[in-house]
Design a protein around this nucleic acid. Sequence first.
DNA 1: GACGCCGATTGCAACGTTGGAACCGGTCTA
DNA 2: TAGACCGGTTCCAACGTTGCAATCGGCGTC
Lengths: 342, 342
Amino acid sequence: MSITLHDVARVAGVSIKTVSNVIHDYPHIRPATRQRVEEAIVELGYTPNLTARNLRSGRTGAIALAVPDLSLSYFAELAGSVIQEAEKAGVVVLVEQTGADRRRELDLLRSPRLKLTDGMIFSPLGMGQEDIEALRVPYPLVILGERIFDGPVDHVTMRNVEGARAATEYLLASGRRRIAVVGAHRGEVIGSAGLRLRGYQEALLDAGIPVDETIIGYMRDWHRANGALAMRQLIDSGAKFDAVFGLNDTLALGAMRVLQEAGLRVPHDVAVIGWDDIDEAQYSIPSLTTVDPGSSWIARTAVHTLLDRVAHADRQDPPTLHLSDFRVVARESAPSAPPTEA
Amino acid sequence: MSITLHDVARVAGVSIKTVSNVIHDYPHIRPATRQRVEEAIVELGYTPNLTARNLRSGRTGAIALAVPDLSLSYFAELAGSVIQEAEKAGVVVLVEQTGADRRRELDLLRSPRLKLTDGMIFSPLGMGQEDIEALRVPYPLVILGERIFDGPVDHVTMRNVEGARAATEYLLASGRRRIAVVGAHRGEVIGSAGLRLRGYQEALLDAGIPVDETIIGYMRDWHRANGALAMRQLIDSGAKFDAVFGLNDTLALGAMRVLQEAGLRVPHDVAVIGWDDIDEAQYSIPSLTTVDPGSSWIARTAVHTLLDRVAHADRQDPPTLHLSDFRVVARESAPSAPPTEA
DNA sequence: GACGCCGATTGCAACGTTGGAACCGGTCTA
DNA sequence: TAGACCGGTTCCAACGTTGCAATCGGCGTC
């Protein structure tokens, strides 16, 4: 069907091993032989059969990336960064979508389809701490996110508590006192929502401001529509607030829309801050102040950590934890200065 | 290293071929034997080595998808749909990013990395009609988009001219007469920009309205920032217009932001229509009227067309062309009724 | 009772590649 | 001059799987 080493060997008049040696830059080959082989390769348009190579070598040169859903901007951008980083390392990426469904996440971890890859970068959203044992898999695995901590595998994530604390302190420093939250998860301790809410609460307590449950909007899925919905509920409840902390940008953008529809001026009446620094945050109206959690660093680190494990599968190094740096990106929706009277 | 057929065979006390037969539901196996084998499989946690299977069978069960960049919402959503559709067919997707760079697109087409897949769905953005011969590749290929027509491979795309004509007619019907364009490409005939501009022009001519070059904003890359930039240039030029046709949603959203900053009311002073119906279009302020070009149908059709070619590689069926249906999705940024005086 | 057939299972080769051992002719060293 | 050594190349086995052919015992048929 296609051109193999045998064909090249026949044309060049050498054995297939010599061709293989040429391809692998084995040093002891006579220049004349090397040239003949190279000519034959070009003439026939030979490209190595990676499947066969992989079978022999045990490596596939591909890694899997599992994310909840590419239609979520955060994960699309993350996937883009992972692919870009993997390409630099000469590795391709197989992308899977779990739909944030616990069952599908668990299934994926033991799917034979993974045999096509050397390892996986996995961003769970449905699984939780109780599923920690499911991470004990017979291939290199790097997990992202904050659904599971202290697992048996490498983990790359962001400083959620500190970042949320910084976001809250930023709002406090700009004179806001009643900071609503959009996207909290009831009873969650770890997980993005739980940790960010904790950072928020810590900042308030440090500032001597009591946490007011009536301005915390709970919302399971972090879609824009839910940001809008939570905001509408808060407004309808009659609660008063002068700032909103959207636990991610998408929620914040949805919330911002509702605020404006309700005739509340952003940032004059209500300041809005998000989290993720997705591309869109720069272009919304007003542009969105947000926390950049260092996602591209996370992508880069995840790829390198995984490839490192793949390359040194023999070593039994203990699992590592990598935390990115964050920073508050000040934009229009929450300027650093208090609003002037009006 | 890992569990193979041999291990299962040893435990079950049969030959590896029998194990293979059990796995493949070969009918003539005694129930007792089958059960023993199945127990051994479970006991050992055997999963087939897909690499070996692929080498033997010549199929990999993976397809490649090449898009310009996952940080572009349109392509992220498209990739999500392709992955979802492929999964239904039991196939995994390897995602590549070309950065819309012609050189990288051409390289990708002959990359040996594709040996890992059975075929590719390819959305070129840098290549053009002159590169048509590069599509003659030794594996099944389906192209998307409108950079290349009448190529030697299957093609799935949208009705650009008709859709753009419909968008323009929609604006005309709502009483707009001076419709600016954002994102045109100078001198382009085919390609998304060229075709959509043609549809726009045709609709104007049919309505007896001359095409006014001074309200056509040219912009190479369809990023939000460029939509904003083009809009600013149009406003600064002093040209008058009562509607904007963004050649995609991202441009339209960028343009809409600038309009509002400039104190122009959307849709009262200027109506805005986009193209793609990305998720975000529903949630912008105001929500964006746009053309839904049938992207999920495109993803579905592309996957099936490709898998069909893979399954019938022997047949030499001529290349096919598949065109999706479109529809204008009316939202706030361009209501179907003319604005009331104010 | 010889024959063919059928169900159940096994053995062997092959997919295209690579690593290691083997080989071979020549040169250098003792 | 035997032996070690070396550069250059070839040969063979193996990676884990599947397709095909072969095997083998039992059963029905003429």
